[in-house]
Amino acid sequence: MNSFEKIIHNIKSIQTLPTIYTSISEALKDPFITPEKLSRIISIDQVASLKILKVANSPFYGFRGSIETISQAILYLGFDEVKNIIFALSVVNIFSKGGTNLGLKPADLWRHSIGVGIATRLIGNAIGEKELENYFLAGIIHDIGELLFLEFIPGEYKSVLELVIKKNCTIREAETEILGTDHCKAGQILAEKWKLPTSLQDVILFHHDGIKDNQRSKLIASVHVADIFVLALELGNSGDIIIPEPNFDVWEILQLPKDFLTSIKKKLIDDYKQTVRIMLSE
């Protein structure tokens, strides 16, 4: 069995998402669902509820400390944003157990992804995106394929990380050379198994390209820029050493305001520190 087949085999056997997430997804299919009913479903899992409240009060949502109940979280952030927080927390929980591989551990990758999630949301906000709820989650899960590799093929992935250092190439180039595939493709297969929306599957598959074919997705472009900026700021560790050149088309797609990246730098770092503490604490 080669590395790719091994990954596919493992994706098939990977655990499904926690009950709380599937119950909520099911409940949200009811067009007449009320915040109270949904909050009752969430509150069954008390540990998860507490963490959801902490994340909902993260500075980047702008309601610092004022959300005290799950019902309020639903009211202020909306059904979908709360569902996404639950999903993000569940995924972090599933992929946090792998060991350190040549200095790279899952927690480092999660730190990087949290940074990208916050930066992506700040970009979405700046460009006046109306459906912001997927922006944080898109950043959080963009590198999910790397977590799969770290967990299921640690031996082969050590060779990938060694090649990155030896050839001073990008992690994606090293993955393709050693594994015959990359974390974008592997992550997308997992996202498909989890039935994530196509927009999120596309982010996972195209975040290094910045665009999907000739489509102008603001979400993909936002994650692309956020990923590179977070890498430049060295928030967390994605395994990449080289800072990749952005796809030039993303600047036209996003139409960011002048000095945008410098203007969010301080807020991004402050929010990053707090959110890492909340999401990665036991």
């Binding site: 001073n168 820029v225 590179i228 900026f229 430049a232 700021l233 060295e234 050493i241 080289i242 800072i243 050149e245 952005p246 030039f248 600047w251 960011l256 002048k258 000095d259 945008f260 990246l261 410098t262 730098k265």
Partner: peptide, 23 residues
């Protein structure tokens, strides 16, 4: 130079470079 192998083409890319340089 070993991490940043490209030349910035607009002010946003210059901001990315400056952030990396500061670190």
């Amino acid at each position: 130079k070993t991490r940043f192998k490209w030349n910035f083409r607009n002010s946003f890319e210059e901001e990315i470079y400056n952030a990396a340089l500061m670190e």
